[in-house]
Design a protein around this nucleic acid. Sequence first.
DNA 1: TTGCCGATTACCT
DNA 2: GGTAATCGGCAAC
Length: 197
Amino acid sequence: MSKIVNSSFYLGETKTVARELIGKILVRILPNGSRLTGRIVETEAYLGAKDPACHSFGLRKTKRIESMYLKGGHSYVYLIYGMYYCFNVVTREKNEPEAVLIRALEPLEGVNIMFRNRKVTREQDLCSGPGKLCQAMGIDRSFDGLLLKSSPLLIEGGDGSKFDLISSPRIGIPGKGVASSWKLRFHVKDSTFVTKK
DNA sequence: TTGCCGATTACCT
DNA sequence: GGTAATCGGCAAC
């Protein structure tokens, strides 16, 4: 059984946290105690005030992004395109609104429940995208602003395996000048569970 | 108040 | 390859 990640982990450099979240386990605990878990295989770093692609660029503050201003280790969940949710882990200190977007998981426990939550037939289609994994794990706006250390949502340390990592530009943010080419996306090399082309 | 667009996805030709 | 679905933020009217 893996250990819950200590909150101090999330206070470091956001790019480092994004890289080191690869291989850790996202755990969703249902009201009946069932565990839905997946190994994190793809992440992206969003660097707050100085990052034009980040919701908190220039320290913008709205109701939607209030949780980004919480201390590292909280969740930031928002609605995108009016129909999908994206799950982020807040990093750094309070009032330093940076975060890591969790883009893909390799399903581990509770796979049959994930199949019930999404209408797909292949396991590779369950959590291979930020909107997909929220659907599979039943994460919505009510999970925004939670401390990721207990039910219903937390992150565990994983099995300590090492992975070959690839870094690349972030997906879906064209037209943001130099920020569009920053290599802030990380994923496990050769994983079949990452975002598809 | 209106209109456009987004850290997406599924389904269409 | 293209585009509809559908809501909140925000700039423009």
